[in-house]
């Protein structure tokens, strides 16, 4: 099992590097779809099927189509065919900056509790001083008050409805403003 996970992570990393370095934008877009599918399987292995569904549908499906549309509409299709090399030169100063940034992220990741550990603070029902943790509060409230089992949906609709409502309005406003900028705001 660990080899499957390692292979998937290697595949995702290789795809990410290919996307960053490729000169062929259509190839990079297709590689991006493969990257998202690999990441979706990683989410499934990490027991996060909700995130995997979004990653597969948005990352691999809708996002690739939107990127393809952008590539075709901006006439970037022919760029790179006359070049000798298929990859961009690596921007070493950028790599150095990102490596420095990666150190605290990697250090934080390594200091997290083990995956699925029952002693992790995130899955304790109470803090050491006796107060309810968010986990204890929401899981208990989900099971007792709401009466159904998907805690994510319970939090989104029952406990944090205003956030979800605002999210929808903001998402539609964002889509509408994109169409306004493109002069496609057709109100009949």
């Amino acid at each position: 099992m660990i080899w499957l996970e390692l292979g998937l992570v290697a595949f995702v990393l290789a795809a990410a590097v290919l996307i960053a370095l490729s000169r062929d934008v259509v190839g990079a877009t297709v590689t991006f779809a493969a990257f998202s599918l690999g990441l979706a399987v990683v989410w499934v292995l990490l027991a996060a099927p909700d995130v995997a569904l979004v990653e597969a549908a948005v990352g691999a499906g809708v996002m690739s189509v939107l990127l393809l549309v952008a590539v075709i509409e901006t006439d970037c299709l022919s760029s790179g065919d006359d070049e000798e090399q298929r990859f961009r030169p690596i921007n070493w100063p950028l790599v150095a900056v990102l490596s420095v940034l990666a150190v605290p992220f990697g250090w934080t990741t390594l200091s997290l509790p083990a995956f699925g550990s029952p002693d992790a603070p995130a899955v304790q029902a109470t803090y050491p001083d006796g107060g309810l943790t968010p986990y204890g509060y929401y899981i208990e409230a989900t099971l007792v008050d709401a009466g159904f089992s998907n805690a994510v949906v319970a939090v989104l609709v029952v406990f944090r409805g205003l956030d979800t409502f605002g999210e929808l309005v903001v998402a539609f406003a964002a889509a509408a403003s994109v169409l306004v900028v493109l002069d496609r705001a057709v109100i009949p």
């Binding site: 549309v69 952008a70 509409e73 929808l168 539609f172 493109l182 496609r184 705001a185």
Partner: peptide
């Protein structure tokens, strides 16, 4: 319904390119 409308609308009107004055 709202999410589906956003995704569909973005895809089919982005593919039309820049408009011509509405």
């Amino acid at each position: 319904v709202v999410i589906g409308v956003i995704v569909t609308g973005l895809a089919i009107w982005l593919s039309a390119g820049v408009g011509d004055g509405g």
